[in-house]
Simulated assay, not measured.
Amino acid sequence: MTTFLLVPGLFMGGWAWEAVTAELTAQGHRALGVTLPGMAERAGEDPAGVGLGEHTDAVTALLDSEGPGVVLVAHSYGIFPALAAADRRPGQVARVVFVDTGFPEPGESVVAQMPQLGLLDRVLGGVIPVPEEIPAVHAVPPAELERYHRLATPQPVRTVTEPIELTGAWLKLPTTGVFCLANGLSLEFARTLHGTGLPRFAKLAEPGVTFFELATGHYPMLSAPVELAGVLVRAAAGEGVGLYED
């Protein structure tokens, strides 16, 4: 049995992982969809006063209670608090799985890494409102799309403006990247990044780093939960391809 901690991206809570956790549980694993402070059912916890530090503390506390041997899964923004927590507690983490996201450098914030999102253009009262739509390219079924708009909550702005604190301890951990092809991430793109020779992309080709590709969009926990759960189980077993494998 493997324990999976699943950290969601922007605007989402543990609810986003329900179909994935159900599938993992059916396969005999322990799976916990994480709701971070200020989000979803925890939205009453003064979201305007919540930052990346509080999100990191929450994931760290879960690692302390669930580890060692946890497979830490993070989608999109979730890699910021998840990676910061893994960096604090590397002995608790068996593998970090990046779901359609990259990894930040020490001192980098979400808005610094992804300025193209324009997150700060929409800030209202210390939070970022939920986007009005998820583009059709992401293949989210109508029922899941309705559920997203019903359950999604505004994102505390400090979670995307505060810089991540990393010592580099996480770099020694096995990792797996799950690329969602409809969103533009792929093995080919990762090879291009590694080919730049920039130090921040060196880990992509290291031993113990594997990759999967899913033919879906940026929200695979909503659009392809069974397929994603299968990939997570395989990732936990160390499966997947290396950066330059066929």
Rank of each mutant, 00 (worst) to 15 (best):
M1G: 06
F4G: 03
F4D: 01
F4C: 00
F4V: 00
L6Q: 00
V7R: 06
L10D: 01
W17P: 00
E18C: 09
A19R: 06
L24Q: 00
T25E: 03
G33D: 02
G33L: 01
V34G: 09
T35H: 09
P37H: 11
M39H: 07
E41H: 13
A43H: 04
A48W: 04
A48G: 03
H55C: 12
H55L: 09
H55P: 13
A58M: 10
T60N: 09
L62W: 08
S65P: 08
G69V: 14
V71M: 09
V71F: 09
H75C: 11
G78T: 10
L83D: 12
A85Q: 08
R88L: 12
R88T: 04
P90T: 11
G91W: 12
Q92Y: 08
R95N: 13
V99W: 07
D100H: 05
T101C: 14
F103C: 15
P106E: 03
S109M: 07
V110E: 08
A112C: 07
M114W: 15
L120D: 08
D121L: 14
R122D: 13
L124Q: 15
L124M: 12
G126D: 01
V127C: 07
I128W: 04
P129D: 05
E133K: 06
V137A: 13
P141Q: 07
P142N: 10
A143I: 12
E144I: 07
E144W: 06
L145F: 11
Y148F: 15
H149A: 07
H149V: 07
A152C: 03
V157C: 01
T161F: 00
I164H: 02
T167A: 04
T167K: 02
T167Y: 00
G168N: 06
W170D: 05
T175N: 12
T175R: 15
C180G: 04
A182C: 07
N183I: 06
G184F: 05
S186A: 10
F189G: 13
A190G: 07
H194W: 06
H194T: 03
P199L: 08
P199H: 09
F201Y: 15
F201D: 12
A202E: 15
A205I: 09
G208N: 05
V209I: 14
T210L: 01
E213I: 04
L214D: 01
L214K: 00
T216V: 02
H218G: 12
L222V: 10
P225T: 04
L232R: 01
A235I: 00
A235Q: 00
A237F: 03
G240T: 02
V241R: 15
Y244A: 11
E245W: 12
E245C: 11
E245Q: 15
